[in-house]
Amino acid sequence: MAYFVEQLINGLTLGAIYGLIAIGYTMVYGIIGMINFAHGEIFMIGSFICLLSLMVLGLLGITWVPLALLLTLIIAMILTSMYGWTLERIAYRPLRGSPRLAALITAIGMSIFLQNYVQILQGARVRPMQPLISGGFEIMQSGDYIVSLSYLRLFIWVLTLVLMVAFTLIITRTALGRAQRACEQDRGMAALIGINVDKTISLTFVMGAALASVAGMMFLLSYGVIDFFIGFLAGIKAFTAAVLGGIGSLPGAMLGGLLIGLIEAFWSGYFTVEYKDVAAFAILVLVLIFRPTGLLGKPDIEKV
């Protein structure tokens, strides 16, 4: 039982990270119908910016952890969303309206480009970081086995919750959210009633990148090591999460993220750690074969 609870905690933390990345995939898919394969790289860039920002802040003498984290969060969200914006502007906007595969190949090209860009600029080796938030409290004990909930995990959950609430409010209550939902339904019609479609799409990428940078920070804090290659696997798993939840559906992305995180944690806890990536891919294949619309998605009808 104690072991189960521990895996549950692990899974929920991992799931929060996947869910935040998955929102970026699902939003972009909803609005322009393409798989933004480079989104995992944006997540990776976000976590690098967090590392650099934490170190620079430390150098500047800001060592009070909450303040440093808050500043890092803001800096990383701003700078990473610039990358998201530029990505859309340079690589995707010229291809709007071209075949899906062309857009996907561009996205793969961009992903390779960004990976190597970071490798050249920041080095190929693994970057370690000392844990910033330590400690925790005990929640369960069975025999000698103590399950503790660290403050870091708690911080991640609370932050995810806050972001989800804020994000839901943006989508449902603001003009931007309305514009975005309108573009999702019919871009041509949205343009006719005076919505700036280009701007809305750009802002979608900005929001997705900002959320991915938060996920990058969580990854950095909870694993303590990053390198230029983390975006690939995290990206694929987050995409799996988006598909599992139903691509195009925002609550679905979060739900899918949590499910993928839980599956991965329990798989590595009870079966083998080595094959945990295979489990994620297998889920992707199974979902696509048996329920292509995902758990919360709407069916996609192809018209002639």
Binding site: P94, A102, A103, G109, M110, I112, F113, N116
Partner: peptide, 15 residues
């Protein structure tokens, strides 16, 4: 720079 150029070439050609 090889892979960097690969990625850039894929993007530019698709555009």
């Amino acid at each position: 720079y090889r892979m960097l150029a690969f990625g850039a070439a894929m993007v530019l050609i698709m555009i």
